[in-house]
Design a protein around this nucleic acid. Sequence first.
DNA 1: CTGGCGTGTTAACGCAATGTGAATCAACTC
DNA 2: GAGTTGATTCACATTGCGTTAACACGCCAG
Lengths: 232, 232
Amino acid sequence: MDSNETFLVFPDPAPPDLVRCLDLGGYRWKTAAGAEAVRNGNGNDSGETWTGAIVAADTQPEAAWALCRELRRGDVATEPLLVLISGAQLDELTSADDLFDDFIITPFHPRELEARLKHLLWRAGRGARPEVVNYGPIELNLETYQAMIDGRPLDLTYMEYELLRFLTANPGRVFTRETLLNRVWGYEYYGGARTVDVHVRRLRAKLGEEHANLIQTVRSVGYKLGQSRWKE
Amino acid sequence: MDSNETFLVFPDPAPPDLVRCLDLGGYRWKTAAGAEAVRNGNGNDSGETWTGAIVAADTQPEAAWALCRELRRGDVATEPLLVLISGAQLDELTSADDLFDDFIITPFHPRELEARLKHLLWRAGRGARPEVVNYGPIELNLETYQAMIDGRPLDLTYMEYELLRFLTANPGRVFTRETLLNRVWGYEYYGGARTVDVHVRRLRAKLGEEHANLIQTVRSVGYKLGQSRWKE
DNA sequence: CTGGCGTGTTAACGCAATGTGAATCAACTC
DNA sequence: GAGTTGATTCACATTGCGTTAACACGCCAG
């Protein structure tokens, strides 16, 4: 907790008990209003390097998860990510494993929070997140936003890349259109389910004829990537 | 059975609430007496591969930490390591960061334990627990929506999959057509009972000749899956 | 302003999945 | 063995769902 170690805290008026606990522990912290604010580099004027993030998801769940997704996008270095949730939100975690490193249930004991922070920081000392995701012929570089298939570069639009990234990160899993809209587009997004269809179609077109079947549709459920290429 | 997904649990008479929680979640587990017992390969007779370890350190702290140290020695593959501690033991964690992956404070909420286990398993790169249902030669992957029989993939339609899933989840129990219509099709659904017959028939056909009798008809009652294969 | 470009929406189309009815078959009763 | 009930099978209609193309909006660069 020396010098430049600052935590990103959400929401903007930080929860009082969280504030007290952090101050008592000697941690430096700064609040962030939301995902957009972080994307535009608020609060941290210079290099946008945080020690970690503490996101309270018990009051404004959608905004909180949106922030987590933004942080995990990789633009901002926020290695350990701790979320605060209420006990009733435990089910929300099941499909969001990749959005946090640890969680704590509110109301929390100050010393549990401190212990989790310490453990997270210790673990961050020697843990690297993969900067490249690949499945089969697909290879996604998370830093350069470049997608390759069979070593040949693809030029995807932003949404196409995000969709492909999400599917590739969870190969084999089936996602409903609604889930995709939530996880890829954003929790606050309200739109028609056909949006997903169209983007899947465009993705398939760009993947080429031979690889179009990488994205498989599970009828009346949703879409999934890969798995079971051997079926006619 | 699928692979050796078994948790190592300490101490030997495992805490009752932990036992209940694990059993309810469908996890396999086995107790270990202590560090020496693990070193000598007790409990796990064969290859000594565990899915993870859950060490309760609130009753016998010294023995528990000794076990953690032994597990972390590397001889036994025990990747995710979860410790249970009392609130008063939080300071003990400060100098033991390398001995555990996550911790939970007793008394704990069962759903918090399950959430932490799932997250740990996810982080370890393996699939989480309750995503696969199987009975006999049938194996249903709930997140891939894939059905396998004898390791060979089946391609089922949505309703066929849902019906098989429901029956497999409650093997041996007889369900009336009406119950099936309610539980599988939907509570608001009102349709002819022949619908169930036809879907059962299609399922049997896809299961193949040898496994068609997995779905048995109980005359003037309904259908059930498995149990009593000796009836030919 | 104007032209591309990325994105979301709408509607038409085609097909497979589902449900229904009738005919056939098997099982139990008397 | 006849009669009755229930289960199986088949064929066919229809609905529902995914695909596809075309369009509309907003954004930014030129």
